[in-house]
Design a protein around this nucleic acid. Structure first.
Lengths: 238, 238
DNA sequence: CCAAAAGTGTTAATGCTACACCCATGC
DNA sequence: GCATGGGTGTAGCATTAACACTTTTGG
C-alpha cells in the first residue's frame, strides 16, 4: 500500500481500504448524450472530474447505495433505469490505498432537469473533460452498454419522457447511438417489437406548420429484451 | 483452501468483512454444458455446492485473483476466456458477516480435462445440485451471458478445441444454447462472419463410413464482436 | 451397391433501410 | 396555395432456416 503523502494522507490514515460505488448517470440534454460529473476539490486528482458516488455503507446493498448517494449528493432521484456495469479492483487504481469500485449505469429521462450542486455538471459523453482515477473508462463502458441495449431491449423508455413524438424519440436515439436514426423506420421497428404504442393524442404543429405529430408511449417502463436471438435462434416450438 | 469463507470466519465473525472472487467455470462435457462446483465441508452451507474462488489478495486485481485461485485450488489453468459477470453485495448474502463477491465467467475448451481435487465436480448447468449462498444465481448469469455472446461474438473459440469438425462444433453450440443447431447452417453463418476458416486438413471417417469431415479453426482466439448492430445500425460510410 | 456422414444449392421467410409519395396543418 | 413536418407504401437488400440433393467414404 502506498505510503501516505503529505496532508491528504492525514484524512485517510493508514488503513484505507474499502469499496465504493460510482454512477455513470446519462441523460440526453440538448440532443447530446451527457454524463453527470463532479469536480474534485482536493487531491488526489484535484480539479479533475470524477463520477458521483462514494463509500458503500455497512448495511446497504450496492444498488441501494448508488441510489442513496445520487439522491444525497447530487439530488438525482429520477432514475428510470439502473444497472450494474463493472467492478474495478486494480490494486493501484486509487493512489492512497486499496479501493474497489463498482460502477452502475443510471439513466434519467430527457424531460427532467435535476437540481444539482454547483460543483457538478453535465458533460457531453463524447467530449469528456480531464477525468480522475479510472472513471473515464467507466463512462465508456456505460456508453457502450447503452448503445448495445438500445438495439435489443426497450431501454429507450429510460431516455424518453412518458409521452413523446417519433421525431423526438429519433433524436434521443440519434444522440445515444451517435448516428442518424430515421424516425419513420424507428417507428416501425419499435411498433413491430411491441415496445411502443400510440396514446391516441397528438401534438399540434408549431408556427411553421406541418402535420400534428402523434404521441407515443413505451408499453412498459421496465427493461425487457425484445430482440434476443438475432441469429442461432431456437427452432420453432415443437 | 476454502473457496468461500471457511472456519476462520466462524471463529471471529465480527471481523469478517471483505471481498471474494468466484468463478463460474463452464465446459462442454459429454455434450452437456457443465459447471465446476466445489462441495463445502463446513458451515455455513455445509454439504452444499458452491463456486470455486476465495478472498481477494491484498495486492492483486480481480481477474488476476480468479486465475490464481483457479490454478491453486482446483488446478484449472487452461481458461480460454475469462470475463467479469457481476458483483453482489447484499448485506446478508453471507450469514457470518459482510462479504462482497465478484463473479467471473471462465471457459475451458472441450478437449481439456483438468485434474481437479476430489471435492470438486462438474455438474450439468441445467441440473444444478443444492447450492449455497447466492451462487446458483451466478451460474445462471454465466449461462445467460454465454448464450447471448455465442450469437454476436466469436466466443465459440473458447468452447472448442483448436481444430474441430463442423459437426463437433454444432454439438458444442447445441449444448451451450440448449437447442438444436444445424451444422450446415452454422458453418455458413460462422464462415460469412469470418469467425472460422478451413485448416485444409480433414478427419477420416469412422468405421460406419461417411465422407471425411473438413477441419476448421477459429481465425482468432480472442473475443471479438462479429455481429454488432443487428438493428438500428449506422448508415453506410459517407 | 448401400448406408452413413459431410457438404452444396436453392428456396422461402424475415426484418430491415431507403426513398418516393401522401396527409394535415399554419400562414 | 404552399411550405413544413408527419405518416404510409413499397421495393430492394441482407441474412438465415429448412430441406433436397450431391459427394465421399467404409463395408
Amino acid at each position: 500500500m502506498n505510503p501516505a503523502i503529505g496532508a491528504a494522507a492525514a484524512e485517510r490514515p493508514a488503513a484505507m481500504a474499502g469499496h465504493e460505488v460510482l454512477a455513470v448517470v446519462l441523460q440526453i440534454r440538448d440532443d447530446r448524450l451527457s454524463v453527470l460529473l463532479w469536480r474534485r476539490a482536493r487531491p488526489p486528482f484535484e480539479d479533475r472530474w470524477v463520477l458521483p458516488g462514494g463509500r458503500l455503507g455497512d448495511r446497504e446493498g450496492l444498488g441501494e447505495s448508488v441510489r442513496r448517494q445520487l439522491a444525497q449528493k447530487v439530488d438525482v432521484r429520477d432514475l428510470t433505469h439502473l444497472e450494474q456495469l463493472e467492478t474495478r479492483g486494480e490494486p493501484d487504481r486509487h493512489p492512497y490505498g486499496r479501493m474497489l469500485a463498482t460502477a452502475y449505469l443510471g439513466l434519467v429521462p430527457a424531460d427532467i432537469d435535476p437540481v444539482i450542486p454547483c460543483d457538478t455538471h453535465w458533460h457531453p459523453a463524447s467530449d469528456l473533460p480531464p477525468m480522475g482515477f479510472d472513471h473515464a473508462a467507466m463512462v465508456h463502458s456505460g456508453r457502450r452498454r447503452l448503445r448495445a441495449k438500445l438495439s435489443y431491449t426497450n431501454v429507450g423508455f429510460a431516455l424518453a419522457p412518458p409521452e413523446f413524438t417519433m421525431s423526438q424519440l429519433s433524436r434521443y436515439y440519434r444522440a445515444a447511438l451517435g448516428h442518424d436514426v430515421a424516425a419513420t423506420n424507428l417507428r416501425r421497428v419499435l411498433l413491430r417489437r411491441g415496445q411502443i404504442e400510440e396514446t391516441g393524442e397528438s401534438v399540434p404543429s408549431g408556427r411553421s406548420g406541418g402535420r400534428p405529430a402523434a404521441l407515443f408511449r413505451f408499453r412498459t417502463r421496465r427493461l425487457e429484451i425484445t430482440d434476443a436471438f438475432a441469429v442461432l435462434r431456437p427452432p420453432p416450438e415443437g
